[in-house]
Design a protein around this nucleic acid. Sequence first.
DNA 1: TTGTAAGCGTTATCAT
DNA 2: ATGATAACGCTTACAA
Lengths: 335, 335
Amino acid sequence: MTLADVAETAGVSAITVSRVINQPDKVSASMRDKVQKAIDKLGYIPNRSASALASARSGVLGVVIPSLSNAVFNDVLRGIYDVAGPAGYQVLLVDTHYSPMEEERMVRTLLSQAPEAMIITGGDQTQHTRKMLVKSGVPIVQVMETVESPIDMNVGFSHRQAGYDLVTRLLANGFDRIGFLGARMDPRAQQRMLGYKQAMDTAGRNYDGLIVTTPKPSSIAMGGELLRSVMSSSNGVCDALFACNDDLALGALFECQRMNISVPGDMAICGFNDIETAALVNPSLSSVHVPRYEMGVTATEMVLKVLAGNEVENKKIDIGYTIQMRQSTSTDIHW
Amino acid sequence: MTLADVAETAGVSAITVSRVINQPDKVSASMRDKVQKAIDKLGYIPNRSASALASARSGVLGVVIPSLSNAVFNDVLRGIYDVAGPAGYQVLLVDTHYSPMEEERMVRTLLSQAPEAMIITGGDQTQHTRKMLVKSGVPIVQVMETVESPIDMNVGFSHRQAGYDLVTRLLANGFDRIGFLGARMDPRAQQRMLGYKQAMDTAGRNYDGLIVTTPKPSSIAMGGELLRSVMSSSNGVCDALFACNDDLALGALFECQRMNISVPGDMAICGFNDIETAALVNPSLSSVHVPRYEMGVTATEMVLKVLAGNEVENKKIDIGYTIQMRQSTSTDIHW
DNA sequence: TTGTAAGCGTTATCAT
DNA sequence: ATGATAACGCTTACAA
């Protein structure tokens, strides 16, 4: 079922059919009608490969994320799909499993689809990946974190600063021995930990035995495990926790409830990302709110702007974050 | 940067380069070396569109899901990616936003990429969508639910039966006035509700004022709202709830906690899907466990099998479910 | 407004 | 084992 078939059925030339599909304005109404009938009759569906080859426009937006299981990327993805879809772009999504080597393979795979633009997570690509990306010449946005020297464009926020601010706030609220829980320490988690350390250092606090991390994947269950770890490594002398993400924080919270450790009375807990559960669990969980959906939307709008031939004035956008203090870090006597 | 460029650089013909890439065995070692060097030197990346056009093999697996925000589909997706990726297939994912009309558009879009196989959610496609799918001639698996007359293949389970079993179990445990909470009643949610009604009917129970649903999207917050609704519509005479999914169930649970309604003492609650939080929240949440990841894996293995030219003996697979009874529906006096 | 011809980058087919 | 040539289905450039 090809253009030629439709053309024959309609009694016109192939190019006319092509025009009816892609530039209807350039075709007379009568032609349009005739051709459209033939299309419907035959159930013709254009072949994008042929179209891409002939026009050098693939209509593909490549997206690289480190994990499909992490709900955080879902929100970004939604933003991307919501903008890319209506604009007529197809999203080709690949998952690197947090591995720079796999990322290299995936980027090559993606590039072989001749994407017109790419959105990629973070700034820690291998040298080779960067080279491929630059060479491709397509507009690229690195998302999720602010990047010193972006390949092209960048939308994110400083995870280090967010961690620093949060811990500083906890210290100001009178928490003394603040622990850090982390799992699967990707570059952004590392930055959050760095922020934690800087805040503790600035306040002249020692964090020996207060940091517990694991290379294993993050999960709610892991949050429970890490809580038990920090209780023992700190000899129980720990009155607050900065969990690297909300899953860990929830796991720690649930585990505290089972161990009859009062939150925030005996242990304050805060997470990162502000997933929906955070605001609704009891006690509600303090967290760092990040506009993930907006990040996806913004990144996609940026590449579309470039593709439309317009200038992007600000190639580096810090989309910020807001700290949500809730019951789990309250110092109110009633808690 | 094309095959021809590489060929020239290596001093061979284009087809030889193609062979080095696709069928290295058919090329002598010396040629392979020479060509590979040229490829590396030029940083050549093959053009999939041209390849797809010439070979009539796109290497694309089309996947249709109703929502990117629903974590449930994520697990299925992971299973799909984990099998499709290593097999050399690219996943092209589209989101229908639970709309059959949008699904029709999306399927057309997908088909224009000439996917070699498709995985699509559920069995409620429009007549036209079905027609397109059948006509495409590619292997197709409908996932998430058992389908009476699959377009081609099917992997799922009976949501109606699961709902029926769960409610029957609650009745057997002595719960009397069991309510139903539902949001965004997609076909599978409808089936769960039907199962609920059948179980109630079978037990001779009346469910006036006990069913509360909304067309709005499901969320944890919505679970809280629906809980308040059912409390009022049932005049407070409701001792157990079957929430259509775990988000609603968690929302109801959290809201009960805030309203000082003891769970399960005053109100038993159970959900559906068995997301990770279910087993870890306090009290732990009863739910229906569904092997989502396995569903994605199985579906993908089925299409790969067909693509490899093998027979699939069982085209309809009921992957089952297991009911997880936990603290939230316990009748133990200690709760 | 419509059509003709050439070519996009790759692979199938058929030689050598 | 390697290569020449002709597709694949569409769009660009140019003509009518």
